[in-house]
Design a protein around this nucleic acid. Sequence first.
DNA 1: CGGGCTCTTGACACAAGTCAAATCGCGTGG
DNA 2: CCACGCGATTTGACTTGTGTCAAGAGCCCG
Lengths: 244, 244
Amino acid sequence: MMQTECRRCPLRKFPIFVKMTDREVDFMQSFKVGELKVDAGTTLMMEGSNSPQLYTPLRGMGLRYKTFESGERQVLNFVLPGDFIGLQAGVMHEMQHSVEATTHMTLCVFDRKALWTMFRDYPERAFDLTWLAAVEEHFLGESLAAVGHMDGLGRVARAFVRLHDRALAIDLVTKDGMHLPYKQQDLADALGLSLVHTNKTLKKLREREIAIWRDGQLKILSYPKLCAMAELSEAREPVLRPLI
Amino acid sequence: MMQTECRRCPLRKFPIFVKMTDREVDFMQSFKVGELKVDAGTTLMMEGSNSPQLYTPLRGMGLRYKTFESGERQVLNFVLPGDFIGLQAGVMHEMQHSVEATTHMTLCVFDRKALWTMFRDYPERAFDLTWLAAVEEHFLGESLAAVGHMDGLGRVARAFVRLHDRALAIDLVTKDGMHLPYKQQDLADALGLSLVHTNKTLKKLREREIAIWRDGQLKILSYPKLCAMAELSEAREPVLRPLI
DNA sequence: CGGGCTCTTGACACAAGTCAAATCGCGTGG
DNA sequence: CCACGCGATTTGACTTGTGTCAAGAGCCCG
């Protein structure tokens, strides 16, 4: 099957992604070594390993997480189309977290060795890479703040708002809501809550008719109320990010 | 007073910092526009602002934090000599957190506009900048994991181990322990604990003769026990990081 | 039909938050 | 020189959010 050309990349058109010049698009095309389709459950990157490849998901969702000696996990964030996977492996010696596909995923594959070419010959793109790292840092900081200071309801609300915003930005929200293929355990691990407590919190949101998450589908009934619970302003300017 | 030349930078010699070529050191010298001394309490960067300057602390300590509408703070991490301040402002439109000096600090000052020169003419240094961002991301991920999964004692232990390691790496640990000029409230805000609970946890560490933090001085009595509580192996290879 | 996930719910325990007050330094001004 | 106020640290008593345990329900799949 024909793989998608960067020129026709389905993601580039969305306004959350920083505009690229034609020359940059052409370079990205040469940087791209292929396309990968994986099934749900596939581990894309392993904590401690050093992948020779870097990815940008085109379709599907996944998650990044760290594992503890005890067997518990901390989910760092949810991976959506347009994210970049493997930057740590590219610049540090090894990945500090794992990445797993939650659904079937289609990913652009880049060669890690080409990263250096980027820095040498395409400073604009290298700059974008740093920018991207800064964006990741920003969102991690947000999560840390949420887990550090908000109660269960607030954390869940915030996660829903963030996911919804991101999905909306890449046109993944329909009148029925958005596809959210994770398990309650995944959300619990992301928010530092127990599974049971997460479940009870979701029930509250359902009962108060604020948001319903069922059968992998998230439907927000009252965005204003959800934002209020998440301590987020309804009118936020979206975080712009580069697309690699 | 004569300012320190990069060539004689007191930090470069420490092994946690990535080695630089002479050419790179010379470039950093040209990148450096001055040296700044600030008093304790000075706000170096403001959340939402866009500083025209970037800093690398040479001496002194500070902290990065986010503020909530409620007035509470989340401390993201503690700033020690060799960190880099302002990368977000440099690549994103504005800072997403504030940075404050906790003690008197001496900082190398770089011009934000020179950042682009770095990307254009010194790809190795641009690479290091990305690397640095990845290191920050890594530590934030660690903090998130700690706050998400460990109890008070574990979090405090982990913070102490991390701070101690970092201080040791830049020769700030003496037989009396290390200088740790923060308030209990700062630590509490970093760990997502209340001040009262943090205080009681510190008392436990004192009573069990594991670590004593008093009068701005942290003395670790049993590093093995502290590591065990922090769920960290005693033999960890240090995280290498570039120096900007 | 049975086994294995995931999701739900209820009962109970406990870690951590909140409230309140005492103590200790320390700098300031009378 | 001492009284005072202020910030940081301690401590105790009480409350509560969240974790843990346990069991059942719904569902898919072999």
